[in-house]
Amino acid sequence: MTTSMLEKEDTDAPAGRLYKRNIMKEAIFKIFRGDKNGGSEVEYKVPVEEGMVVLDAVHYVQKNIAPDLAVRWNCKAAKCGSCSAEVNGKPRLMCKSRLDDFDLNKEIKVYPMKSFPVIKDLACDVLWNFEVNKKITPFTPKGNTDWKMSQRDIDRVQEFRKCIECFACQNVCHVIREHDLKPKFAGPRFFVRVAGLEMHPLDNADRLEALKSDMGIGLCNITKCCTEVCPEDIHITDNAIIPLKERVVDRFYDPLRMFFRKLFSWLF
């Protein structure tokens, strides 16, 4: 692309004319069209503007060629996590996928997230995630607190609370994607939520038993695929999953602790 050259030209152009002058070339999109019964790739030619993202291209198709193209989106600024899809096989937010990061001489393929059932075109059924969330013990404050917390103590929890629920981490997780162990496993998004609760300085609930049994945290083999796709750069594996795993191991599998518990079991 010759973006820099065009930028130079545009700087002197009157504001109203910029739209038209920036059409540089066409990109070829192959977008999945279909539903749960199957479907196929459909090719669309989309004129390219400076700074354009994949979601802009999908909107172009919707407005000009196929108004019934199903796609979820809201903020268009990577704050709501609605427009997750697989662009050239990689899970991403379409609103954050700049066209100048792609080789426009090749087609760009856009598919719905792979780990969830397709509803239609790019929209898929993510309801399972909302069901998992309901099972997590909510925030349970300690009694008699004055609600003072130092910024240092909440910094790490605020990292987890950046999650925009795009479910890209759920989509890419091997336990869900390849083994489809959804009934036994909560997935990275919800380990992040639990980490945010467990590490909240004023939370008083205990979610370790649930993490081990209902949420299946042991099934995660820390390949870090979730961390790689997180658009919010949350260190899902290092900061959320591994510390939680350690807490579960300490509680349930540590031989010393286990021995200690057995020895003094008469006390309990």
């Binding site: 539903d35 108004p67 019934d68 199903a70 239609k120 075109d121 929209a123």
Partner: peptide, 11 residues
């Protein structure tokens, strides 16, 4: 409106 009533943003 073209297409069906299934997830049809045009509709």
């Amino acid at each position: 409106i073209d297409g069906s009533r299934m997830y049809n943003p045009g509709w």
